[in-house]
Design a binder for these strands. Sequence first.
DNA 1: CTGTTAGCGCGTTCAT
DNA 2: ATGAACGCGCTAACAG
Lengths: 343, 343
Amino acid sequence: MPVTLSRATLIEVAKLAGTSKTSVSRFFGPERERLTPKLQTRIAEAADTLGYQPNLMARGLKGGGSRLLGMLVADIRNPFSVAVVHGVEQAARAHGYSLIVCNTDNDPEQEQQHLRLLTAYQVEGLIINAAGQPEAQLQAIMRSGVPLVLLDRDIRQLDANVIGLDNALAIDMALEHLVQQGYRSILYVSESPAYASARQERLQRFTQQAATLGVKGQTLILSNLAAHAPTLKAFAKHSVSGPGAVLCANGNVTLAMTRRFQKLGIAIGPTGLMGIDELEWCELITPGITTLAQPTDDISHAAVSYLLNQLNGSAQASPLSYRHAPRLQVRGSTTFKHDPKHV
Amino acid sequence: MPVTLSRATLIEVAKLAGTSKTSVSRFFGPERERLTPKLQTRIAEAADTLGYQPNLMARGLKGGGSRLLGMLVADIRNPFSVAVVHGVEQAARAHGYSLIVCNTDNDPEQEQQHLRLLTAYQVEGLIINAAGQPEAQLQAIMRSGVPLVLLDRDIRQLDANVIGLDNALAIDMALEHLVQQGYRSILYVSESPAYASARQERLQRFTQQAATLGVKGQTLILSNLAAHAPTLKAFAKHSVSGPGAVLCANGNVTLAMTRRFQKLGIAIGPTGLMGIDELEWCELITPGITTLAQPTDDISHAAVSYLLNQLNGSAQASPLSYRHAPRLQVRGSTTFKHDPKHV
DNA sequence: CTGTTAGCGCGTTCAT
DNA sequence: ATGAACGCGCTAACAG
């Protein structure tokens, strides 16, 4: 039952327990065992009656480290980001670290400010889902000895590791599935790949593999998510080269395309629809939208593990993978029975 | 161009600039004007070449405050929570505060730990979306002088303000809309109202108002989101007392019910469907699901304003509202043209 | 095993 | 206008 109005301090506890700050400090640190049982209980009682809690700021100051991890997210409203933040927070907590998350809303300027802020709070490690290309700042951070991982998006000219989806594999899986289901013409739709390496990797792989597999591949870049109605409409007729499917580069695009399909009256299934990123509503849209779910937990755990390895001098560095395989979630949007003569 | 490997400190800057810590401190504080222009530029240069950044931990230690706000979220994967976190972070940042978010996954035990953690980091204010009833801890926190607001969920026996939706108004708006659209029998579906005051308020208001308005009101409490198929099926027949509609207490329920409707083959529209909480897919489900959107920005801004008012001694306390009105988003799920003889 | 001492990086008197 | 000295709450040497 705390009675003090202001926060109790180490020294007050010591006084009340009739001992010194050091012993109290030890009690709350990893050296508790070195104290006499009697002393331990005395301290415990004193701390309890005062409602004492160590001040982590002060602790961090001395050199014990802040026990803080920082995370920079480009768009916290993106379900993928939410899932990763959730996973990272759990993993960090499990290792005794707390997380301070900053959202940049895809604004490079905010990104710089937040980066400054994070370092000002002495975070011990950084997980960066970049919006822009803050290579200078990040380089400085790395040089200052703070470990750092990139999430999903690479940054040119920065020698840092990227953790995220295995984009090439994802595209391959998508193509294999679509071809297997009888789609012969595929329209790949993506937001602008500028400044987002994951998008670039997917786009490039698509172009390359579509050719290899001999399917008719087209690509469409959405600016501000407004899709070209004519392009889509023409594509939906799929009279030229057999049944066609639209492959969406991420969740945002899947949402935009689903809207378009509905608006233009394009039937989902006859014209295939598939997306990277699993969303809770994909099973609700009749007849269900096939997706490639990202293993967000694996990704977030890997990111945290990476940081922790670096912090522990990578002594017993547990091996971890940077590229993670997606999980194929097949639904009705890609399992339409096409007229055999087209297939 | 920072060259130092470890983080530069105030004193190093002072040395390089040929001055004292105090002046450098002033330069980075609110007293910059008191320095000679020459000195200012000298310090600026020195700080720049060293890549100096004030250590916010140390700053907070002295009494300057941590400039940190804490937020406890029951379920960070809930879109409503995400929206509020986003808004809170923006508002906090706009006022020079940073936010450290903790997710409890609806686990009272984690909640307690996170609460301890947050206070240990000397947060200056707390926004609590409670999972359990940590009244004792929160009381202690309030007594220690740290301002605190409850978000969406009240805590019994705790004299703290709650900011969130105007639940009574929301229910009233929903009922008015449904009745106006010709639905005469309404099934209100909610998750367990235990430990979630918002749910209680909505449920109670529904029961009360349904009676007042003379509509046939039933309620159904979902445990683990598994809905009673029989109840629903029977309800869908709506042969007894005219067309029926299902009103969902929140986004989770809307998701669960939409699934049920599809699984049981209940047509959306003929049997109405409406939900509290706007979700991005509600417009995608044919024929669109009518919702009551929560004004998440208003709510989050109000929460931050409240905290800041308290911190500023509520000097020029700007007035703010605790209960916020929802916005009705009408879609096809509640605008079906019923057979007149039933209406 | 325990207490004493000295900083960590910074803000803040109080002199100059 | 500027600097010297002290202390915030804590951990880490170093004694005893």
